[in-house]
Design a binder for these strands. Structure first.
Lengths: 308, 308
DNA sequence: TAAAAATACTCCATAGGTATTTTAT
DNA sequence: ATAAAATACCTATGGAGTATTTTTA
């Protein structure tokens, strides 16, 4: 049978694509790694890597084996973490990933509360787009992630924390600023400003503006919501912004108008996701609860909201 | 780190609840197993079994570890099966589980077709209720199962094969036999006959008869659909029967009337499910396709259907 | 007192290390 | 000519077996 040792070495090789460096990463000598890989290839009846003079590249079989190896090793680490589940809630280190359109607005409040209520918790936070977070979660580099749900992969367990409504952000002078409630059908492809590709916010905005042909969009893609709102304030276009970002008080620009949509207001569901094999479900649910209670809000949920 | 060897031995112990027999199952001596278990308990910082003079019983931690161990070992076996995925479709041994309300009606046709189209396939079939099938699938005793979807567990991947509509089966003389289309609201708790607990058909029938209080049901629970229909024919009550079972021609009893419901007709989705980690997705989807094409049907789907 | 599990002790298979050769550009 | 990976060979760790002791109902 294949051994865990072989999986670990191969994971290192898949990461480095170099026998020598992989051996170093695994803490063994290069020949030892070569031998184990050779056995693995014999058992799997096919080459996992193509040997080149500069290192190695994965074969198709190799890619599949690498993916599965990662999952199995994660499940193994999760199994070893089981004793922790019998201890206190939110105790010890927890590596949390957060999407960029949530992190800056949610994190301050979240850190405040965790420090107060769970002083034993030591959060390590990483911020990137959903796709990266999901793969880092799968390979065990992260314990949990905060993102827009559902993630579409049945591999992960999820706990919803709160609905984050979208508002239309338009320059004070524009016709959009005067139309209440906002209407998605009135938005034109050439005035809509969006985050760059890969940000879920971009896809969500496009889903709301069903009438817009994505190919007709202006090529500009901002890297942060703050940038996007600055551009809107400067009269360069309009955008859909989540309430979460607006409530943080970051926006007090007189040149900006925020208009609610009619009920049912479009929203995204923000929550926590984790590997099903992780034994810390209790922790992640506690985290989601904490997020529910510390979400910054703009007045009442139904209050018409206008600046200036 | 925990080793696969330890997981295997512990799985054997969890299955047998006896050190000696577990050792036999694992093909090693009893002391060898004791030693490995001891190390495991040290690494997991807690006892996995309670030692009794007659053997061993799992602790709570032990149960959780056993479940995870099973999954990891399954994933490992699936990884080793990867080379097969690069071979022909539906080739080699395949252990298939089927629910009792489908097996007798679908299997004959399915076996015919697989023998013709995939002669290299060697099917081993097992018939039980969904819950058992799902756990046997999880621990690797089965490769795939045929059941009513969705299964509610995100752990499994699924492929739908066909809709199986429900019809009302009533004795020829009863008022129900004369009411077309059938109406779920007219069904009384004390006349409804159902399969015993554990059969998904029972739950599905109850879901359709929303107005019925399950506590008011007659305590009788049949073990097979054939029995149930015999009872109905004998005037002992009525039931909801899936079209699949009726189309097989098993029912030609003059005393039985089958009445369709109004559109949208209630139905259950029959399909195939498998461990996401299994590399034979192609096979399972081919199987689902085959099922779609070999489902026995009663005339046209919309034909009002009446016997006698 | 009997059945079950733990301990003691020995052996060997296998993974790992170092030194060296082969390979490919 | 050089960097990378494979091979050769030796060593040692740890898992397994047999024999025996301890435990508890």
């Amino acid at each position: 049978m294949l051994t865990l040792r072989q999986l670990r070495y191969f994971s290192a090789l898949a990461a480095t694509r170099h026998f020598g460096r992989a051996a170093g990463l695994a803490g063994i000598s290069q020949p030892a790694l070569s031998m184990q890989l050779k056995e693995m290839e014999a058992k799997l009846r096919g080459p996992l890597v193509e040997r080149t003079p500069t290192g190695a590249t994965l074969t198709e079989l190799g890619r599949q084996v690498a993916e599965r190896s990662g999952r199995i090793l994660s499940a193994m680490r999760d199994l070893e973490e089981l004793p922790r589940a019998h201890g206190a809630v939110l105790d010890g280190p927890l590596r949390l990933g957060i999407i960029p359109s949530v992190a800056p607005y949610l994190l301050p409040g979240l850190l405040d509360r965790t420090e107060k209520r769970y002083p034993a918790l030591s959060l390590v936070v990483r911020e990137t787009v959903t796709a990266t977070l999901v793969s880092e979660l799968a390979d065990g580099s992260l314990d949990a992630i905060v993102a827009s749900l559902p993630l579409g992969t049945g591999e992960l367990a999820e706990a919803a924390a709160f609905e984050d409504r979208f508002l239309l952000a338009a320059p004070a002078g524009s016709p959009h600023a005067a139309t209440t409630p906002a209407m998605a059908e009135l938005i034109d492809a050439d005035e809509l400003l969006l985050l760059e590709d890969g940000h879920c916010l971009r896809d969500q905005a496009l889903a709301i503006c069903r009438t817009i042909d994505p190919r007709r969009l202006r090529s500009f893609g901002a890297t942060s919501l703050a940038t996007l709102l600055q551009l809107v304030a400067a009269g360069k276009g309009i955008t859909l912004a989540p309430e979460l970002a607006l409530a943080a008080g970051a926006v007090s620009d007189k040149r900006l108008r925020l208009v609610r949509f009619a009920e049912p207001q479009p929203f995204r569901m923000i929550g926590v996701a984790w590997r099903r094999s992780s034994p810390r479900e209790r922790d992640y649910r506690a985290l989601a609860d904490l997020m529910t209670s510390c979400r910054p809000t703009v007045g009442g949920h139904d209050t018409p909201l206008e600046h200036g």
